[in-house]
């Protein structure tokens, strides 16, 4: 799209306005899917242009709340990509076992499905009481849901199937109780987990980790913001710490040579020094 395309200008101005008015920084996001979500919000607010949406967002915080919900992608499932969790058991658990105590950062945890999946893998490896999981997201609403650990019961069939493919031992149902159409996961799974707000686009390093899991989060970021996050990860990883990315993501330049590939297919990387 040309730099003088009116819609491109409207997107830039809207994101600048959102940042200055509400301090949420979406300026470094990848534009194609962002534009789709902006337009969805514009249609629902009855705005005919993105400038019209900007007008509403700047003057009505309730519109910003709704836009924020649209802009944070919260599509997730338990044991998504079962192969990833299988390789976690095979290649990452033995590494974590070498530490007396390990810290794990689940960056962009959304409503927590991935976090609870990790906790189950760690519990089955007998490591859950030797790790602390920091599960972060920019969106407080999804964190509140993640803390509850309750997911729609009708999804459990699929999650159970994923769990089996991920090398699960027995039935996943032993980890949750059911009530009113919800499956609520056992407190023992999440008591070593800290759910906290952190925005990868804006916030700094806050601890040193042995494992960072950040899958399909940075696909929504343009290259310069991805570079910022990789910088942040290096500042947050112990020597020989592991980073897990989504299936279609890689460590971006110029950071590739700071890592060895631990598993090419499941996108696991290990910091060299």
């Amino acid at each position: 799209m040309n730099p003088d395309d009116p819609e491109r200008i409207e997107v830039d101005l809207l994101l600048e306005g959102v940042y200055r008015r509400y301090s949420y920084d979406f300026r470094g996001y990848a534009r194609a899917s962002l534009r789709r979500r902006l337009w969805r919000r514009a249609h629902e607010e009855g705005a005919k242009t993105l400038s019209g949406l900007q007008d509403r967002v700047l003057h009505d915080p309730a519109v910003m709340d709704r836009l924020l919900r649209d802009l944070s992608i919260n599509v997730t499932e338990m044991f998504r990509d079962p192969g990833f969790f299988r390789i976690m058991r095979e290649k990452v658990v033995p590494i974590l076992r070498t530490y007396p105590y390990a810290r794990i950062w689940n960056a962009g945890c959304s409503t927590g499905e991935e976090t609870y999946s990790l906790a189950i893998v760690l519990a089955e490896a007998g490591l859950l009481d030797r790790v602390r999981i920091y599960a972060t997201d920019m969106n407080d609403d999804v964190l509140a849901r993640a803390r509850q650990g309750s997911f729609a019961l009708d999804k459990m069939g699929r999650y159970e199937e994923n769990y089996q493919r991920a090398g699960g031992a027995g039935d996943m149902s032993r980890y949750f109780s059911t009530q009113d159409g919800q499956a609520t996961f056992a407190r023992s799974l999440s008591q070593g987990t800290v759910f906290a707000q952190h925005n990868l686009a804006q916030d700094a390093a806050f601890n040193e980790f042995h494992l960072i899991v950040c899958r399909n989060v940075m696909i929504y970021f343009a290259r310069p913001l991805q570079e910022r996050v990789h910088e942040l990860f290096l500042a947050s990883l112990v020597r020989f710490g592991v980073v897990a990315l989504g299936h279609k993501e890689s460590i971006v330049a110029p950071f590739e040579d700071r890592y060895d590939v631990l598993d090419a297919g499941e996108k696991l990387y290990r910091r060299k020094r």
């Binding site: 799209m1 990848a30 534009r31 194609a32 899917s33 789709r36 979500r37 992608i73 599509v75 399909n216 696909i219 929504y220 279609k248």
Partner: peptide, 12 residues
């Protein structure tokens, strides 16, 4: 999706 002559992916 496509943007700036390159691929953009989304799990929306």
């Amino acid at each position: 999706l496509v943007e700036d002559r390159s691929v953009e992916l989304s799990c929306e």
